[in-house]
Design a protein around this nucleic acid. Sequence first.
DNA 1: CAAAAGCATTGACCGAAATCAATGCTTTTT
DNA 2: AAAAAGCATTGATTTCGGTCAATGCTTTTG
Lengths: 192, 192
Amino acid sequence: MYELFFQEFNKKVALTPEEQDVIKQYLTPKRLRKNQYLLQEGDVCKFIAFIEKGALRQYSLDENANERIIQFGLEGWTISDLYSFLTGEIATYHIDAIEDCELVLISKTAHEELLLKVPKYETYTRLQITGAYIAMQRRLTSVISSSPEEQYSGFLTLYPDIARRVPQHMIASFMGLQPETLSRIRRRISSK
Amino acid sequence: MYELFFQEFNKKVALTPEEQDVIKQYLTPKRLRKNQYLLQEGDVCKFIAFIEKGALRQYSLDENANERIIQFGLEGWTISDLYSFLTGEIATYHIDAIEDCELVLISKTAHEELLLKVPKYETYTRLQITGAYIAMQRRLTSVISSSPEEQYSGFLTLYPDIARRVPQHMIASFMGLQPETLSRIRRRISSK
DNA sequence: CAAAAGCATTGACCGAAATCAATGCTTTTT
DNA sequence: AAAAAGCATTGATTTCGGTCAATGCTTTTG
């Protein structure tokens, strides 16, 4: 249990077996079936979720109730509405499962106690959020500076696993495009 | 010296005078005149810069050599090409001064030694990057889910100080638009 | 297995942003 | 003070994504 979680943790900061046992006590497993939600807009986000298995998406709804996907999550990644989690304000994002999922949840109190009790947990958290920041900055750069063709090609090479497992209209939403537009972009690319 | 830096630091984690003295030894002041650069694409980013005074912009160049501004920095903020700083790879962003600036630089070795010697520095860093992550996520959401009008209005209310101090064509670049387009959007908004 | 739902594609049309070009204003430089 | 550079605005035209609508294929569900 929690194999992947500790594997990723140890990649960032090596843990002793004892530390690992302490951390284990603060973790909660959760299964989610495809299409079930983990977080709904309007609720407070009560946890950080590490993905052991499966795929999820985090999105908000625009004025026309279109889904706008801000992030995908696959195994080994972490997903949460961090702002809501940290401040206790209601969430502005939805999170739900694209495939059946196995998650590891860290509640707010668990998070706070781990920060106090296990110094390496703080390091893990810092490195984890740093990686997420860099990935998001790269994405934002791509969105504001590339043509949709380039953006899509970049996405395919950077995240081939997502492209394989996720329906195309969600990738369109991730890119801020309509499904029809992405379809046409794909045709344009393949005809080159 | 370093007043604002320690003010912001203490807002996140309270320091004793002794800790403050230790940290001070790792900081380097730097002045930058308007239009001078702090980082050029192709160089390795050697520091994290805290802004005591002034304004900077971080941008990349697209295929037509258009500037695409990924981030502005005002006093109290931190600016760096984190990916380059952490990995030692060459930078993909430029950073230069929009106004005369006073900066506080933290070099890579200073950063690493501070992480080891001063536990609160790690906490500061963690909170700092978390805030940056949340701000960037909010921005990305706005870019992919709002109309340019809404995006610009949101920008004005969220960052009125930037709007006041930075030329309009840079704000256009920040929004991923051409200057002409932003000008027309402004007219549309003001005629309502 | 049949019906329904979800999904990708294509076409026609419309609207909005990009592009090209020109103008006038303000700020900077000499 | 004059010249140059930087900047915002406006107009005309083109390009490209959005919207509406229809079709066929695949997957899910009862």
